[in-house]
């Protein structure tokens, strides 16, 4: 039942080399993986990044986009630092494709990390995950405006649950405070699913989970979204709960919270000194993945925006994103140095 047949791959190799020698063309010189590629996942099994990496793996397998096999290894220790340290320490190894989010460049900002953001080079960003304000399904707030007003009445009393400390969630909560003048209390739980349970159980007042993290519970009416941090409303789709769907959620900026966009990129990295040809190879591979119907299905189902960025565009995006977040870090005094 195991499909991997390394023997036949080895038997084919001399043959392939022979043909390569016959046709000394440009494409034969291009970089190709010659042994199994390791997908380093910077979250535990079952996390958002894990689903991202495994979806890519399943698409590559299904469409046979790569000849070599893929080994997925979860290294989610230290909020993902474990995975980044692991690939950063393998200086030029093009066989360690690392899957993460913007925490690659945010983690070294807030804590002394045994790796620097520059130790890895970005290969591609494949999707943008949205953020929303969620409250308990039974809460009285009809809109985000109500919620913020209520928070202003009780400064420092309303609690936001989030995944970790000084992460994307807490950054966003600080930005909301800055934009509205309200004062919240942020409680770091371990991961988005914990933050969800605490909200569904009514132990906290709100969270800023990604759509996919709360979808199942919204369907059941246990939690409800108030607004989404994107410049325009999400695409219309099937109704999720009581004839309301993703497309019906107002943007936060229309509710008087002056944050037009806050998203988390789903990113792929290689060690900084990996050869440029390998980077190009993986960019092509991931581009092909992002063009399959299965990828579209994944982004629709998880309510992410499919957005394929590479090269200068990606560098620019990372610079801007890091700049925005850095400002919040400085304001809150979270910087490591």
């Amino acid at each position: 039942m195991y499909k991997r047949t390394p023997l036949s791959a080895h038997q084919l190799k001399p043959l392939a080399l022979f043909f390569a020698a016959l046709t000394v063309s440009g494409s034969a010189l291009a970089w190709q993986p010659e042994r199994p590629v390791e997908f380093v996942v910077t979250s535990g099994a079952g996390g958002g990044t894990d689903t991202f990496a495994r979806t890519v793996q399943s698409i590559i397998g299904k469409h046979k986009l790569m000849d070599e096999s893929i080994i997925v290894s979860n290294k989610g220790g230290g909020s993902g630092a474990e995975g980044y340290v692991y690939s950063a320490s393998s200086k030029d190894d093009p066989y360690k494709l690392t899957f993460g989010t913007n925490n690659e460049y945010l983690l070294p900002e807030v804590g002394e990390m045994p790796y620097a953001a520059e130790d890895l080079q970005p290969v591609a960003a494949m999707a943008m995950d949205e953020f929303l304000i969620w409250v308990n399904g039974d809460a009285d707030y009809a809109s985000a405006k109500d919620f913020i007003d209520a928070a202003k009445q009780n400064p420092g009393k309303m609690q936001f649950a989030g995944s970790q400390s000084k992460d994307t969630d807490q950054t966003l909560v600080s930005m909301i405070e800055e934009a509205t003048g309200a004062d919240f209390r942020y409680v770091p739980f371990n991961g988005g699913s914990q933050a969800l349970v605490q909200l569904a159980g009514g132990h906290v007042d709100a969270n800023v989970n990604n759509p996919n993290e709360n979808l199942g519970q919204w369907q059941a009416g246990m939690v409800k979204p108030l607004c989404v941090f994107s410049p325009e409303q999400l695409p219309k789709g099937e109704p999720v709960y009581e004839d309301k769907g993703w497309g019906d959620i107002p943007t936060c900026i229309s509710q008087g919270i002056d944050i037009s966009e806050y998203r988390m990129p789903r990113t792929v990295w290689l060690p900084a000194d990996a050869p440029q040809e390998a980077v190009t190879y993986y960019q092509e591979l991931l581009r092909k993945v992002s063009e399959t119907p299965e990828w579209k299905d994944y982004t629709t189902r998880t309510v992410q925006t499919s957005q394929f960025l590479t090269g200068d565009e990606l560098e620019q995006y990372i610079d801007d994103n890091a700049e925005t977040v850095r400002k919040v870090f400085e304001q809150e005094g979270w910087n490591a140095s």
Partner: peptide
Amino acid sequence: CFYLLFELVFQVP
């Protein structure tokens, strides 16, 4: 045995 079990069956390097 280790090779067969880990590398081939479970695919852990």
